[in-house]
């Protein structure tokens, strides 16, 4: 049986209101400052090391994103760590906040469906993150122009735009997760703590746990160890397990797109490299193909998590 009217009626109103709330909120300001300052520090180090390097590099601009100068990680690695924090910050009280402010039943008594409220909130938070990341992206390009004095080539711009798109979907995964938890838990503090717990687990603990689990599932063959090689079975298991974390998917996709010399993201046999010109960059299209599965994984994660919160929210009681 079909519902009357459009499920998106009122969505743009919710979108505009939530976007205005996010952009003017102190919370967003703090998150932006955190990201901008850490990113600037990473960029500063990257620029310093690039200026001392006089070797010709056709992808000088991209090196800004990926170079890491101890003790600071690279710009991309910092974003990989901080984007989830930003997304969680925007999503953890999306639904339970309305409950706790007791505005939910009043808003839902207006002629709109719940779809419009949830979608509007999701898109507004994603747009907020998108705007911030776009600003950051412009900042990187601008700083690159000023301090390196090399105009970016069209391929560099294209690759960095792919970086922007993948980063937004990466944020989408965490935003969906935070909104799902904000639907499940009535207390915003619980939702925030659980989201942050999952974030820390996946970014800090999982990279350590995955190899250990892989060892347990597929113990290394001692013959490989005698030859001083990694067992391919263990290596494949390690990577598959690592890929369960959106963090790893993001890093792999970024490696493929921002380091054009990347030829494969998994373990490779030596004979597969026969005939390859080592160190030669892949064409743009090939790099995107390489990052495609990871990107699709991030998009799928976003959609699946959002669908869960959607179903839960539709079935939830509105009374406080």
């Amino acid at each position: 049986m079909r519902r009357e009217g459009s499920p998106f009626q009122g969505m743009s109103t919710v979108f505009v209101k939530e976007l205005a709330d996010h952009i003017s909120s102190v919370r967003m300001l703090m998150l932006e400052l955190l990201i901008v300052f850490t990113a600037l520090a990473a960029l500063y180090e990257a620029i310093n090391s690039l200026r001392q390097n006089t070797a010709e590099d056709p992808f000088l601009l991209l090196r800004l994103f990926t170079i890491d100068q101890a003790p600071l990680p690279s710009f991309v690695a910092i974003l990989g760590f901080l984007i989830p924090l930003m997304a969680i910050g925007l999503g953890f009280d999306a639904v339970n906040g309305e409950h706790n402010r007791r505005t939910l039943s009043r808003i839902l008594a207006q002629p709109i469906y719940r779809d419009a409220l949830l979608m509007g909130k999701f898109l507004a938070a994603l747009a907020t993150i998108g705007i911030s990341l776009a600003a950051l992206w412009l900042l990187v390009i601008g700083l690159g122009l000023i301090f390196l004095g090399v105009p970016p080539g069209s391929e560099e711009v294209a690759r960095s735009l792919v970086f922007l798109a993948v980063a937004i979907f990466y944020a989408g995964v965490w935003l969906s997760l935070a909104m799902l938890l904000s639907t499940v838990f009535r207390s915003a503090a619980t939702a925030a703590l659980v989201s942050l717990g999952i974030w820390l687990f996946l970014t800090v603990l999982w990279p350590m746990l995955a190899p250990a689990l892989a060892q347990a599932v597929a113990p290394a063959d001692p013959r490989y160890a005698l030859l001083g090689l990694n067992d391919p079975a263990t290596a494949v298991w390690t990577q598959e397990l690592l890929r369960l974390s959106p963090n790893d998917l993001f890093e792999e996709a970024m490696l493929a797109v921002l380091s054009p010399t990347t030829r494969a993201l998994g373990p490779v046999f030596l004979d597969q490299l026969r005939g390859a010109v080592m160190g030669a960059p892949l064409p743009f299209g090939e790099s995107v193909m390489l990052a495609w599965p990871q990107t699709v994984g991030l998009v799928a994660g976003t959609i699946v998590l959002f669908a869960f919160s959607y179903v839960l929210f539709q079935r939830q009681e509105v009374r406080a």
């Binding site: 709330d21 402010r101 039943s105």
Partner: peptide, 23 residues
């Protein structure tokens, strides 16, 4: 249940302990 938008367009609701956006 079937035509909620038509109903909600014509009916005003003041919930128990109504809340507003404080900011």
């Amino acid at each position: 249940a079937r035509e909620p938008l038509k109903v909600k367009r014509r009916v005003g609701y003041l919930p128990d302990a109504v809340g507003f956006y404080d900011q």
